[in-house]
């Protein structure tokens, strides 16, 4: 499999991360091509979620966070001079581990919250709401109760609402941090279907603990590992099929076959 850098949409170059003096991530070079789903797997504490947060500059919100290397979106460094983190986060959306709809807003207000929060002007809000909810395949469930508080929804619905909320911003890249870890199998399946549909329109990076999920939804997979106090690194990166069925590194083989982690 040949992932040419020419088509890659998002790309990390020599990413190193520190928290204070602790070096937690070293030399991560990954390509995320357009319309592909990339899964980041690895045991807890290997730095995969931290890496995900460097991709839309959420990382720098943690006090004492340090960073080296660059993240290129269409060839442009998102950490470059004069680049506003707010603009980066508009282009690169994020879905979090726990569903976090805004409790004081209705379903409809939640969808439009991103536009309002980032200060964008928009005209036909109702259309945006419907389109976003349809793309997150939750429209049919909530179309009659758009005015109700978002937290009246079930956990799985809340997470799809959060996805819809990100989609309303029309991001080029969607980052998902273990989006199904707090959900039941039924909701997980619906979200995986959504991810597959969305990948036709955008680049998706998903952190997951669930290796079946990685195999089901992703085109390529990166395996992160942090050994004995060393910073986390990417041990293996390639097409999902290769990483799971023909791993090159023995540690990858052990991990994907459930020998540790």
């Amino acid at each position: 499999m040949n992932l040419s850098t020419a088509t890659s949409h998002l790309r990390s170059e020599d990413i190193n991360v520190w928290f204070g003096e602790r070096h937690v991530l070293a030399d991560v070079n990954l390509d995320f091509p357009s319309n592909q789903v990339t899964a980041l797997i690895g045991p807890s504490g290997c730095g995969k979620s931290t890496f995900l947060r460097t991709l839309n500059r959420m990382h720098e919100l943690i006090p004492s966070a340090g960073l080296a290397g660059s993240v290129l979106l269409d060839g442009q460094d998102i950490y470059g001079d004069g680049v506003n983190p707010v603009d980066v986060r508009i282009k690169i959306g994020m879905v979090f581990q726990k569903p976090n709809p805004f409790p004081t807003m209705s379903i409809k207000e939640n969808i439009l919250s991103g536009l309002k929060l980032s200060g964008r002007k928009f005209v036909n809000g109702d259309d945006i709401v419907e389109t976003s909810l349809r793309r997150a395949s939750i429209w049919n469930e909530v179309k009659d109760r758009l005015g109700e508080p978002a937290i009246s929804l079930s956990g799985g619905q809340q997470q799809r609402l959060c996805i819809a909320r990100s989609l309303a911003m029309e991001p080029e890249v969607l980052l998902m941090d273990e989006p199904c870890s707090a959900l039941d199998p039924g909701s997980t399946r619906r979200i995986e279907e959504t991810i597959e549909e969305l990948s036709e329109a955008m680049t998706i990076v998903i952190v997951t603990h669930n290796m079946q999920q990685a195999q089901r939804v992703s085109h390529q997979t990166a395996f992160f590992l942090a050994e004995d106090g060393n910073p986390g690194t990417v041990v293996e990166f390639g097409s999902t099929d290769d990483v799971f069925n023909r791993p090159v590194d023995a540690r990858t083989n052990d991990y994907v076959n459930g020998h540790f982690g």
Partner: peptide, 24 residues
Amino acid sequence: MAAEQTKSGSTPQRRTLTVKPTLL
């Protein structure tokens, strides 16, 4: 394709992160 990591060896240069608000 296996890991295509470039091990640079030397300590990478830390970048200054935005800590001060930039927007008006």
